[in-house]
Amino acid sequence: MLRKPIKFAHVVYRTRRFEEMIAWYETVFGATVQYENPVLAFLTYDDEHHRFAFANLAAIHPLGTAETDRRGAVGVDHVAYSYASTRDLLENYAELKAKGISPYWCVHHGLTASMYYSDPDENQMEFQVDAFSGDACNAFIRGDGMELNPVGVEFDPEEWLARLRAGAPEADLRVRKVHEPVSPIRGYLDTLQQV
């Protein structure tokens, strides 16, 4: 049985107007910055760890080119949906895989375990589950773990699903050690660097 997300989580934008975008969302939504570095910013307007994220194309491609400045290079990168549990996320993965739909990137961001999919028009979406409950995600995004590794560590969903079905507690899968290496990122940032 297909597992459905329980809520819309966030949207990520690619921009060449990084500071302006942050200021606009702070003004319009009353959002606050949860985490920011020269390339990424995460903002929220409620108790969710982030509702908006911005990828700074000017920091990735400071000089700009006809290709990086073309229409479509900026705008929505992906939208994200939260699942109720790690089991729901992984069983949904298995159900979709059986139907020929697989994620192009699976990464544990620290605050979420996430699977990224692309629809037939190449719109990207993230299916995620929070790694912590309550205010712990907010504490993580504002803390040292985020600063040490703001992107995350890739994971094998087949391995996670096998461990879960063998009886491993969900909590064992959701905890990421911050000293693990940063993901080589086959998806998200590679895509940004190509635009």
Rank of each mutant, 00 (worst) to 15 (best):
M1A: 13
M1L: 11
L2M: 01
L2A: 05
I6Y: 01
K7N: 09
F8C: 03
F8Y: 13
F8V: 05
F8G: 06
V12G: 15
V12E: 15
Y13A: 00
R14F: 14
R16M: 07
E19G: 11
E19F: 09
E20V: 14
E20W: 14
M21Q: 08
I22D: 06
W24D: 08
W24S: 01
T27V: 07
V28F: 10
F29K: 03
F29M: 06
F29Y: 08
Q34W: 04
N37Q: 11
N37R: 13
P38G: 07
F42K: 03
F42G: 04
T44H: 04
T44F: 06
Y45Q: 12
D46F: 12
D47T: 08
H50L: 00
H50M: 02
F52C: 00
F52T: 06
F52P: 01
F52S: 04
A53H: 14
N56T: 02
L57M: 01
L57S: 00
I60L: 13
H61Y: 08
G64I: 03
E67W: 06
D69L: 11
R71I: 09
G72S: 11
G72Y: 09
A73H: 08
V74W: 05
V74S: 10
V74D: 06
G75K: 07
V76L: 12
H78D: 03
V79T: 13
A80F: 14
A80W: 14
Y81M: 13
S82I: 03
Y83S: 00
A84W: 13
A84N: 15
R87E: 00
L89M: 11
L89Q: 10
L89F: 11
L90M: 06
L90D: 04
N92M: 03
Y93L: 00
Y93K: 00
A94F: 09
A94K: 10
E95R: 07
K97F: 08
S102D: 15
W105S: 14
C106S: 15
C106D: 15
V107G: 11
V107Y: 10
H108N: 02
H109F: 12
H109A: 09
G110Y: 02
L111V: 13
L111A: 11
M115I: 08
M115N: 12
M115P: 13
S118F: 12
S118T: 10
D119R: 05
E122V: 02
Q124E: 11
M125W: 04
E126M: 04
D130M: 07
D130Q: 04
A131Y: 07
G134N: 06
A136Y: 05
A139P: 05
I141A: 00
I141F: 10
G143F: 02
D144V: 14
D144K: 14
G145P: 12
E147Y: 08
E147C: 05
L148Y: 02
L148A: 02
P150H: 07
E158I: 11
E158N: 12
L161V: 12
L164C: 01
R165V: 08
A166Q: 15
A168M: 10
P169R: 08
E170N: 10
A171I: 14
R174E: 12
K177T: 00
H179K: 15
V182M: 13
S183T: 07
S183Y: 06
S183H: 03
S183Q: 04
I185R: 14
I185V: 11
T191S: 14
L192N: 06
V195Y: 09
